[in-house]
Amino acid sequence: MAISKDLVAASATPLVLSILSQGESYGYAIIKRVRELSAGRIQWSDGMLYPVLHRLEHRGLIQSQWRVSETGRKRKYYRLKKKGAEALKKQQSQWVLVYSALKTSWEDQPCLT
């Protein structure tokens, strides 16, 4: 089952922030990690990650730096900033709230499934 487009778009920011909270990373590795985490069910068009990263950088949540990678090529690495960690916490509580609301409402109506 693939996740709907709207949900993919909405979850992009918390996903990127959570992955970066485990240490700095770069675009290609972030996408690979998202695939692992969702068992391939969250399908991003790879290029779309970069505007998301740049927007987060504009908002001051993450920070980027060009460096030469172990392959000898230039690569842009991203790191979570303090403001980003705070934003992640907020996102977490919001998603948990939405999830628990949905779950409770489905428990009230077990015959639906």
């Binding site: 675009g27 290609y28 970069y50 090529r73």
Partner: peptide
């Protein structure tokens, strides 16, 4: 710079 970043991605994927 955007294109450069995506080229780096493209080359990772190719490898």
């Amino acid at each position: 710079a955007d294109v450069e970043e995506m080229e780096s991605h493209l080359r990772d994927e190719v490898e």
